[in-house]
Design a protein around this nucleic acid. Structure first.
Lengths: 264, 264
DNA sequence: ACCTGAACACCGTTCAAGT
DNA sequence: ACCTGAACACCGTTCAAGT
């Protein structure tokens, strides 16, 4: 959560060197079979089952049959464990082949990233910064994202910008989905909505009040109406991705026009 | 962080009724001057100065000269306090007039939201779900966002989609900015980059490796090079917003064309 | 009605000690 | 080299008690 990252003697954060397998493993003396791989796997299992809050050093250790303090020989602290968990959780599958058309390719790349985070939504609660970007799964995802855009007449720097924007859209949508689910499907009842109508008046909120009244701002479907109202944000996800792709098409047209101009 | 939101007897989450001033305040008996307003203000002051992690019930209480437990008379728990803090922190200024052109209007609306979160970046660490959407500052922001789009020939539901996508772009960019700053400006040195080059090879990562080599994937500027290398993501912010707006322009053209078709 | 004191069941992390 | 036990300095929240 907090504070600077202390680099190793190599100049890289320890989580990065560990994840890439650059860390020398001391191997003399007794070995009771603990390792970061096992620790990370156990932690992920707990997070999947009970959420990230349930991942305490004690819970991880006891699930492996060791004491809490034994973990500190393999992991510098909880922060490093979280980073390693995140990296392991959001790995995109190997050996995927993307469609030829860049629009389809970008869409399926976004879908892969989305699926990865949806599979382990707690990974979103772990901050993603420069360190995350250097971790294997992030590097792999970036490489695949650039592959999706390889036919585009844009320079690499701009392509990096595109995959950043798209992945931010994907992750923030999944995050919102998760938050909505956490709060329960119906945070607001019919009578609650009426009460809100008294403070969210057309006078104070001229543009929003009608929308609220019409009902398609909030989900007021009662719980347990046959189908489990999944609160999926598929429509919003697709809509945003479509906007970005349409904007990108325009950008490509602009660039192509400029090249044609220069030729003339 | 966790779990369902328990609604009040009104059918609304308590944080919502408190924020809108719907909660009856018991006023008989002695009053030593504590209130949620004062508690929230004190908590925000701490968060601004020392980060959200420093906001403990004890820290807030002692900063006000009360014991920890006194807070529980005004606030149902830390969760509610956090929601109230978030709402108070990200309020968009009253009395703003947006430009007439919807592109400019949308851009300045996004700028207002961005400024609000940048002013209290810890607000991003507090989950935003359905409850947040019902809080005053969020309602106000949504109303203003719809105002920005009032000239657009799209239905309200789609406009809500647009402001959702834009605000997600804004918040995720600010969040990334924050995470980068937290990790310190230079997480990776020149020699660290060389070490990474040994695992991030052109064979394994054909598209990313050249980009990494070229250096415009990571910020490798040494710390203290005169100007404080702010790690601002202004370029990425603008680029994403431009893409969305360009996509929206296309969408408007499509809709207009369809209307013209129908007329013919 | 408002505030307090003591207690409960937790955290992550350190350090010296065992084998 | 690997693991343990005890301890430290914290959390949020409860409950009964004071005024």
């Amino acid at each position: 959560m907090c504070g600077m990252v202390e680099p190793t003697e190599t100049g890289l954060p320890r989580a990065v060197t560990v994840a890439w397998g650059m860390q020398e493993v001391s191997q003399r003396g007794p070995n009771r079979g603990l390792s970061h791989e096992r620790i990370v796997a156990a932690a992920i299992e707990i997070a999947d089952a009970e959420g990230l809050a349930a991942v305490t050093m004690q819970a991880v250790a006891t699930s492996l049959g060791f004491t809490t303090m034994s973990l500190y020989r393999y992991v510098s602290g909880k922060d490093e464990l979280l980073r390693l968990m995140q990296d392991a959780a959001i790995a995109v599958p190997e050996q995927v082949t993307l469609p030829g058309d860049w629009r389809d390719a970008l869409r399926s790349w976004a879908g892969l990233v989305r699926a990865a985070f949806r599979g382990h939504p707690w990974a979103l609660e772990i901050p993603r910064g420069q360190v995350s970007v250097l971790m294997p799964s992030s590097v792999r995802a970036a490489d695949l994202g650039l592959a999706a855009l390889r036919e585009l007449p844009l320079d690499d720097e701009e392509k990096v910008g595109v995959i950043l924007v798209v992945s931010q859209h994907v992750t923030s949508t999944v995050e919102l989905e998760l938050n909505l689910a956490d709060e329960g499907t119906v945070a607001v009842s019919r009578e609650g909505l009426d009460l809100l109508g008294e403070v969210i008046t057309p006078e104070r909120f001229p543009h929003l009040a009608p929308v609220l009244q019409a009902g398609h701002f909030l989900d007021t479907r009662p719980a347990g109406d046959g189908v489990e109202t999944e609160h999926g944000l598929d429509a919003e996800y697709d809509y945003g991705l479509d906007l970005i792709i349409a904007g990108l098409e325009q950008r490509v047209r602009d660039v192509s026009a400029r090249v044609a101009d220069d030729d003339a």
